[in-house]
């Protein structure tokens, strides 16, 4: 009888150990999830804990609010009216995104350029009616993409060269995910993750106290990943020519236009991922690194390494990662670490 008791208690202890039922956690760790379509993409917003429900609802409302302000293609947006009239007094949100965009443009020496709208339209990336423009028309349109022609004083924005147009598409989603993190924190959500059409940002750790696992898509192979990044309190944003493109006469043209040439950027990269605390910065820099290519990206990171880390996937099918995330990024591909 005593032996039976002994065996039974050992059994219970062992079962607990293996099944992980000895777990410390708050009473309500359940996820609150909202899925919706906005900013021309599909979004999933998840917050854990008792305040999660209110937080994800507030997040969704915030996304619609920002979408309405920032979408250059929508006639009711502030950006549309600025492009149309050449001047506008912007809301704090729009002014703040434009300020970030101009800052990132300067930081990246124009590799990220928020004034590419005239060229994007020429290629049909703004309407979905794709076509390959002539050399001459691209040259003409490039004259209208100078960020120096945009001025922002407090909330008053002015375009000083007629025909120049602003497009915040390369930074709006990153700004939005950062704003959602603020909403989560305001609602005392300790654990949350958003996925805005492949732009991922996290607040805190997972409810079980571990890091979030964010996989980086492998565009070469269906359903597989370049690797998995363990992360917390960071935005993880990837840009690549595989996301949006069209084929014409056997050529593939993608949507990340090199601001210096007016043609799709071809600088040896398949994708560029940026990991940073600031979503807007991560969004803009992922585009910028894709445009810069391997060598320029490495040098750029060395000068700004306190602000972000990166994972590049090259056309030679190699991974190049910065020193700050080499231990948290697991990949089966060949990886070179930059320090």
């Amino acid at each position: 009888m005593i032996r039976l008791c002994k065996i039974f208690s050992i059994l219970i202890i062992v079962l607990c150990l293996f099944s992980g039922c000895v777990q410390v956690g708050s009473a309500d760790d359940s996820p609150h999830i909202r899925n919706f379509f906005a900013m021309d993409t599909y979004m999933t917003v998840t917050a854990y804990g008792e305040n999660g429900k209110a937080a994800v609802q507030a997040a969704e409302d915030r996304v619609y609010e920002l979408d309405a302000l920032l979408n250059a293609e929508s006639r009711d947006s502030e950006i549309y009216s600025l492009n149309e009239n050449g001047t506008a007094t912007l809301s704090d949100d729009t002014a703040s995104v434009l300020k970030s965009a101009l800052y990132c443009c300067e930081l990246t020496d124009g590799a990220f350029n928020p004034a590419m709208h005239p060229v994007m339209r020429l290629w049909g990336f703004t309407s979905g009616k794709y076509n390959v423009p002539s050399n001459e028309s691209i040259k003409e349109a490039l004259k209208l993409t100078k960020p120096s022609k945009i001025s922002l004083k407090e909330n008053k924005a002015t375009i000083n060269l007629k025909g120049t147009e602003i497009d915040l598409g390369g930074i709006a989603k990153g700004y939005t995910s950062s704003e959602i993190m603020q909403i989560f924190k305001y609602n005392k959500v300790k654990s949350g993750i958003v996925n805005l059409g492949g732009n991922v940002q996290t607040v805190g750790l997972k409810p079980d106290g571990s890091d979030w696992s964010v996989a980086i898509d492998n565009p070469d192979s269906d359903g597989s990943y370049l690797g998995v990044l363990k992360t917390h309190d960071k935005a993880v944003i990837t840009s690549g020519g595989y996301e949006r493109n069209f084929k014409k006469n056997g050529m593939t043209y993608h949507h990340i236009i090199d601001p210096t040439t007016g043609y799709p950027a071809e600088n040896g990269l398949v994708s560029a991922t940026v990991v940073a605390e600031d979503g807007a910065l991560a969004d803009a820099l992922s585009t910028a690194l894709f445009v810069m290519g391997e060598k320029k990206s490495e040098n750029f990171w060395r000068n700004n390494k306190e602000n972000f880390d990166f994972i590049l996937y090259t056309e030679q099918r190699k991974i190049i990662a910065s020193d700050g995330i080499k231990d948290s990024f697991k990949t089966e591909l060949e990886m070179k670490v930059i320090s």
Binding site: T44, I193, N195, G198, N199, V200, T202, K206, W212, S213, V214, A215, I216, D217, P219, Y225, V228, L229, V236, I237, T238, G240, E243, T273
Partner: peptide
Amino acid sequence: NTIDAVAK
């Protein structure tokens, strides 16, 4: 136990 999101 799996991934939480895919960046793409």
